[in-house]
Design a protein around this nucleic acid. Structure first.
Lengths: 163, 163
DNA sequence: CACAATTCAATTGCGCACAACTAAATGGCT
DNA sequence: AGCCATTTAGTTGTGCGCAATTGAATTGTG
């Protein structure tokens, strides 16, 4: 399969830019609105995601947080340390398994939920999309992520075999 | 406008997570596939975007690069320095306007284009989407970005007025 | 039981994103 | 000409994302 003769490579390079560039731009635009809205709570967006999980589950080991958010300890450890410094969270090594660290809300952290409940509505409003459009878009993006993850794994394995 | 009585706030928090979380996940999944594919070229994804612009325009001032990519000098200055260290790019203060810095391809940087022309096809293949689906998704995302940018500006101005 | 492999968190190092600030050059205005 | 606001890059500091490594605890296996 080759590029059609009347499709200069320049066009391909432009199209390529548009696919991922649009996604990147949207992701950073989200970062912008969350930064403004979360400022009052003193949270960054990734910290907010961690708090969402804790508000829902009460307490979670670092491992579970990482699975939900697809983040590893290299990202989570310093982030959780900052949340702990802010007094929102405590970290304690599990008694059952000393390798594991349980992350728990402090009273202050649990109380912050009251101020956070209004965030989602404001974010949805900011998108200018209605709930159905959002659902549709989300579904597309998840599909895209699955494709990319599979391709990344395949490429990584191919690169491995070349070694 | 308030939350419907049979919609617990927990659901709102979940929905909120899904919108932006899916976008974030897709953006990072793109990061993953680009990391693997660009490894041979010795470029990161943001560096690749800069090179795309230079391959198209030959030379650009830092300001223009920033406008195209929506990045400021805080991001671009060190990035360009790394590209210069890698021998792909030269930076020269403009003779006409000494404030401006022109970024030019070296021969080595221009030559790298030959290895880059195959990247877009591989990325498109990795998504598992066809060109029309991509165009549709891109259009949605751009729409979303416009909405978010407008809302961010409005929120920032509202916060400013509260001062 | 002893030893090897695995799991889990933390740390280090690099690069990007963005805010806040600095410094130099330019352009407009009186 | 002299002054001042604006423009343009660069620097500093903070936080995220990820790869690679370390160290301790646990599990599996002979």
């Amino acid at each position: 399969m080759t590029t059609a003769p009347d499709t200069p490579t320049t066009d391909w390079l432009r199209l390529d830019q548009q696919i991922c560039f649009s996604l990147n731009a949207a992701s950073r635009a989200f970062g912008g609105i969350y930064r403004v809205i979360l400022k009052d709570l003193g949270l960054t967006y990734p910290q907010y995601l961690v708090m969402l999980l804790l508000w829902e589950h009460g307490e979670l080991p670092v491992k579970k947080l990482g699975e939900h958010l697809r983040l590893d300890s290299g990202t989570l450890s310093p982030l959780l340390k900052r949340l702990e410094t802010a007094g929102l969270v405590r970290r304690e090594r599990s008694a059952r398994d000393e390798r594991s660290v349980e992350v728990r809300l402090t009273e202050e952290g649990a109380a912050l939920r009251d101020q956070a409940v209004q965030v989602p509505r404001r974010i949805v409003a900011a998108t200018g999309f209605d709930v159905e459009e959002i659902r549709e878009l989300r579904s597309r993006l998840d599909e895209l992520t699955r494709g990319l993850d599979a391709a990344t794994a395949a490429e990584a394995e191919a690169a491995e075999r070349r070694t």
